[in-house]
Each structure stands twice: as structure tokens, then as C-alpha cells.
Computed example of a mutant assay.
Amino acid sequence: MKIRFFILLFSIASYSFDGNSQALIDDKDTTFIDIGGAVRFNTMYTIYEGETSPLPTENRNGFFWDTWRFEARGQTKNIGIDFEYRFYPGFNTHFVKKAFLYHDFSDNLQMQLGVTQVPFGKLEFSGNSWWFHLPYYFGLEDDYDTGIKFKWQKENWTYHFAYFLMAEPRGVSEPGYGSFPSARYSYDVIPEDGYNGNKERNQLNGRAEYEKGKFLMGLSAQFGEIYNSNNDDSFNQWATAFHSQYALKEEAKIKFQFTHYDYPNSLDDDGNPVNHVNMGAYGFNTYQVASSASTFSLGLSYEYNVDWGPFLA
């Protein structure tokens, strides 16, 4: 059991500059670059029951520098780039969150090539809290992988089609601290702890979403391969989700998602059947996830705009 209390002390929103902000909105052929970032400090009080914590309690309580990030986005005519790199001093790790080239074929069709968000479930994510929802820890919420993605919009519909060759690149974690293979932004099947060869490969994603007025709903499907480089064997993985959202009013929204995933015939390095897969992120040690599960998630959010001097939201 673990209890954590977080207080966000302050955050600096990303800052961007360009020659003429209105021109960027009105004229898509205008060349621009946006450069920004953010920092976050936390105060934390943590209680762990037992001695299973990968992070000693005495090193986690108090006031500390939680996160800082650098981001850049640029475009010339219908070609652009989108990049974000994150540092987590409290976790002793840093990594790429996203890094892709995009091309607008038209106002309704865009291609993204590189490290980009996997189109699955409610986008940008279904969770409302620092902890996200359970699908996040299954690698099915706010997941980023390396590949190519197409987004097509037609009237009230938005479609995504994507192929991902592999997971996002591994970042950097301090030697002797946590897990080096899990130094990454999103949770993935990673090679460690008796499953040293297991890696995500050749994943296909399809997503359709309908939105009209205050209501939206969508379906997602995913199919891919888990390849073991140690024994040159592989097994499949697949997942599906239904999501919906209803705006009670402009500031308040309620979200629902059903998710099911399966890693049939999952294997370890020796080719033995197992009923779990190893996953990791943020430089923590790996943990075992059931090879098949279904989840239901429900969330309510309320946005409150503030104007406190330099703090705008």
C-alpha cells in the first residue's frame, strides 16, 4: 500500500515566438518556429507499506524538482516538425517524448513520421489525474511509438491509421538506479528480468471517432508482434477499446472507456509459456502485467480558467 500527496507549487507554461501570431492562424504557408518548455516542483509525503518500494521513502519526501521539458515545433508551407524532450531529476532519467515530421496533404489529411502518439482510446488521454487510468500502465494510454501515422477528418468523423515498427527510443537512466531499459516516457513491453529479448515490433493501429455537439464516441483496434531476439521467436498481441465523452457543459466533461487486451501464447526467453508480460517506464524496475485483461474506466473533469497575474490557464 502506498499513499502519496502531491502539491503543484508552480508551473511555467511553454513560451513560443513568431513573427506574426495571427498570420500563423490565417496563412498556413507562413514559416514559423515555436520553442518552449516547462518546469514543475512538487512537495511530497510518501508512506510505503513493506520494503518493496523501488524508491526509498526518506529520499522521496519533501520538496524537490519534479520535471522540466524542452519542446520545439516548426513548419514551412505544409511540412513541419514536432519535438519534446523530458527530464525527471526526481527519477534520475530523461528521454524523448515525441519527435516526428508531419506533412499536411490537405486541411483534412495529415501524415506523421517518427515518434508519435499511438491512436488508441480517448485522445490525448482518458485519465484526469497525475496517475492516469489503468490502461496507461498496460501501455494503452498516452503511448508513443516509432512509425508512421495518418489522420483523416471527414465531417463529424476522425480516422487514424498507423504502423509502428518499434517502441519509442530508450532514454537514459542513472547507472545503478532503477532500470535502464525502462528509461522511456510510455509503458512498453521491455527486455529485462528473464525476458531480455522481448521487444515490441510491427504494430498496426486503427481508430474511428464520431463527434457531434456535446457527445463523441469512438472505437480503436491494435494488433502487433512481441519479438524475442534471444530465441528468434515471437508471439502476437492485440487490443480493442470503446470510448465516449459527454460535455455536461463547456467546462465539465464525463468520460468512459472500455479496454481489452491480450498477449496470447506469451513466452519467456527459454520459450516457456507464461501468463504475464514485463513492462516498464520512467526508469523504474519492471513489473508484471497479466497477459490478458479487461478494464472499465470512468472520469469526470472540470476546467477552471484563472488569471492571476503572470499565471494564465
Rank of each mutant, 00 (worst) to 15 (best):
M1E: 12
F6P: 00
F6Q: 08
F10T: 00
A13E: 08
D18E: 10
N20T: 09
A23P: 05
G36T: 06
A38W: 11
R40M: 11
M44V: 10
Y48V: 13
P54S: 03
L55N: 09
T57A: 14
N61G: 03
R69L: 15
N78I: 06
E84A: 09
P89G: 07
N92P: 02
K98F: 11
K98R: 10
K98S: 07
L101M: 07
V115W: 00
P119Y: 02
P119E: 00
S126I: 14
S129Y: 03
S129V: 05
W130D: 01
F132I: 08
F138C: 12
D142E: 12
D143A: 11
D145Q: 14
K149L: 07
K151A: 08
W152N: 07
Q153G: 12
E155V: 06
H160W: 09
F161G: 14
Y163T: 00
A167V: 07
P169W: 03
V172P: 01
V172M: 11
P175M: 10
P181H: 09
R184A: 06
Y185K: 02
S186K: 03
Y187E: 14
I190M: 02
E192L: 09
D193N: 14
Y195E: 11
N196W: 09
N196E: 15
K199G: 05
L204D: 00
L204F: 14
A208Q: 07
E211S: 15
K212T: 09
F215K: 04
L219W: 04
G224C: 08
Y227P: 00
Y227E: 02
F235W: 09
F235P: 00
T240P: 14
T240A: 15
L248C: 13
L248H: 03
E250F: 03
F258Y: 11
D262R: 02
N265L: 04
L267E: 06
D270Q: 13
N272L: 05
V277L: 04
Y282W: 13
F284D: 14
F284A: 06
Y287V: 01
A290F: 12
A293H: 12
A293R: 11
F296W: 09
S297Y: 03
L300C: 10
S301R: 04
Y304C: 10
G309P: 00
F311D: 01
